[in-house]
Design a protein around this nucleic acid. Structure first.
Lengths: 343, 343
DNA sequence: ATTTAGCACTCGCTTTAAATGAGTGCTAAC
DNA sequence: GTTAGCACTCATTTAAAGCGAGTGCTAAAT
């Protein structure tokens, strides 16, 4: 389809534009060492490339700029994965060296690394907690009106929720309930907790507690109301550094979109595992039309999965960024894996 | 010092400028109903006000703009506290109606309200947790390598930390320790925990646990390493809406400064209780030279205190904002108070 | 002694026009 | 097929002109 020379020219245009953010002209290309032919030749080739939709002009007499199709082709066929520099590798390894034992910490740190090393904005979706298993329930009474319910999962994740204890409910009843619940529900994946609670445990509870209905309901509400998806965003301000966002309106709409955590979470969750690159209009949101979103998945344990994502302009340093995300998701997965080696 | 007429003119200039963000000219002032004298008179008065430093020109033939000294005078002497609208009161009461039982939730919600209702950026410093008292300690083993330490305070606040359990330490030892610790340390303010741990409890622990040194150290590290100050920021993007921040460099430097959480926390903590207004250069940070920071304190229990702050341009709707912050800090304090009514 | 009308002047902002220059497409020669 | 040459395009820069909101000052009116 494309001649070698066309491939070379396309590659050069994209590489150059990614770093300069300026339209690339034929003369500039002809001056490069690896290019042996004249600017006129290049102009002809560029006309062809434009006709095929890989590059565009910003106005009738401007240099060329990659189109989304161009980027897509570049990512799919032209990309030479860049080895990360020693310095970058050091930063990553250093960060993962001190054993972190909570996924929040790992995820947060990873988001920081990702945005710092790329100058783009990182978004990390925490692992789905529902696949994790219940390790222990605990209720700590605070006074005669309120108590804290604490739920610990096998991954060391802790959820807690304070709740009101109505006067009718006795503290000892709560204690009994917790004992029963721990006995019956320990090891149950959180996603099944609801179901199991109703089917198997509620009968048992009824027998042992006086004011069963009430206590049960409070406990259920305290522990099982769905938690909103947790999103960790790093380097939001990096967006301001990108020349494509010198227009404040664009910044505003993009920030607006990042704040819709639920939609973002849904978006990230829907991507398949492995590395995905969505360029410009391949993204469903209007505010992301000039953006590329790269997602990669990491694993925590067997089935549980989370997603790390990087949001930047379509003019993105694809080769570096992709390597980086591969390394990072790998590193995260390994860290998590190490927690379970001998469970 | 200032004549009534000068006071009126100053007030009118500031009021107008706060809403229009445009320099105010003598003609515009003379057209107002409450102003009965001519534009020429106003020009003379304005010349005097300028000489005294309350107002400034942006260039030799522009209208007048309040100076920082002008704002200061306005806040100290001219301000007529605005009653909040019903709608605003509704929003606040609605938000505080559903009983929230964790201070995080209260604080987070308050930050949201504050920024939404003002279109400025809210920053809330969580209460100092060290004044709270230990309610219960808990250790939940995850596997033979790690466990989660959980600390519950009398305010229902939960801190947790996963940690590695070296092979030498027996699970039962940990259990024993926890029992001892709960017995001895329950009710102790967190700030004294460290001290008490060493002075009173360590001896006791030594007797009961085999590998005392190790276990103790791990537990201590897991529970008592200082937590960084928790800052809740709302409406960061509101900054982008303010005309004084149409220059991206200013936005960048301000965002940069907000991200220095420790410095901000220190700044907020250092303010005295009650309501404080810091205008422009009264703030120590360069990035805040065009900004006003208003802080107000709230209480959680007896001594514990937190700070709510609002960051906006010096051209701030002082009357509305100050009322709002008073109401909000009051509301927060009441909410927290209600938790202790019958402890 | 104040207040005000009148007027010249200032200066940022907007519009218009011209100059610049990077880059293209096309043609004709190599 | 490749390239030199040239006319052409158009965003950007520069300069000049006009506009208008607003001031300060003066002299007359109250």
């Amino acid at each position: 389809m494309l001649t070698d020379r066309q491939l070379l020219i396309l590659q050069v245009i994209i590489d150059d534009f990614i770093h300069s953010a300026q339209p690339v002209g034929s003369r500039a290309i002809s001056k490069m060492q690896k290019v042996t032919f004249s600017s006129a030749t290049i102009r002809n080739e560029m006309a062809d490339l434009e006709e095929m939709g890989f590059i565009e002009k910003t106005h009738s007499s401007s240099g060329r700029v990659p189109s989304e199709k161009g980027y897509r082709f570049y990512v799919d066929h032209l990309l030479s994965p860049l080895k990360l520099s020693n310095q970058e590798m050091n930063i990553i390894h250093e960060a993962f060296k001190d054993r972190m034992l909570e996924y929040e910490r790992v995820v947060q740190k990873s988001a920081g690394i990702l945005s710092d090393l790329t100058n783009y904005t990182s978004i990390i979706l925490g692992p789905e907690i529902f696949e994790t298993k219940l390790k222990q329930l605990q209720i700590v009474p605070l006074n005669d009106q309120s108590a804290v319910a604490i739920l610990v999962t096998n991954t060391g994740h802790v959820e807690h929720r304070a709740f009101n204890v109505p006067a009718e409910i006795d503290a000892s009843d709560l204690g009994k309930m917790v004992n029963i619940l721990n006995e019956k529900l320990s090891g149950v994946p959180l996603v099944q907790l609801h179901e199991k609670l109703y089917l198997e445990v509620s009968e048992l509870l009824r027998k042992h507690t006086r004011d069963y209905e009430n206590a049960f309901e409070y406990l259920r509400a305290a522990l099982l109301d769905e938690q909103p998806a947790k999103l960790y965003v790093g380097g939001k301000t990096n967006i301001l550094m990108q020349p494509e966002f010198k227009d404040l309106d664009k910044v505003r709409s993009l920030y607006g979109m990042i704040e819709k955590e639920n939609e973002i979470a849904h978006l990230l969750r829907s991507d398949q595992s492995g590395l995905n690159v969505k360029i410009g209009h391949e993204n469903q949101f209007d505010a992301m039309q000039n953006c590329t979103l790269i997602t990669a998945t990491y694993r925590l344990g067997e089935d549980q999965m989370g997603t790390i994502a990087l949001l930047g302009p379509t003019r993105m340093e694809y080769n570096r960024v992709i390597s980086l995300m591969n390394v990072l998701s790998q590193e995260m997965t390994e860290t998590f894996q190490s927690w379970y080696q001998s469970e």
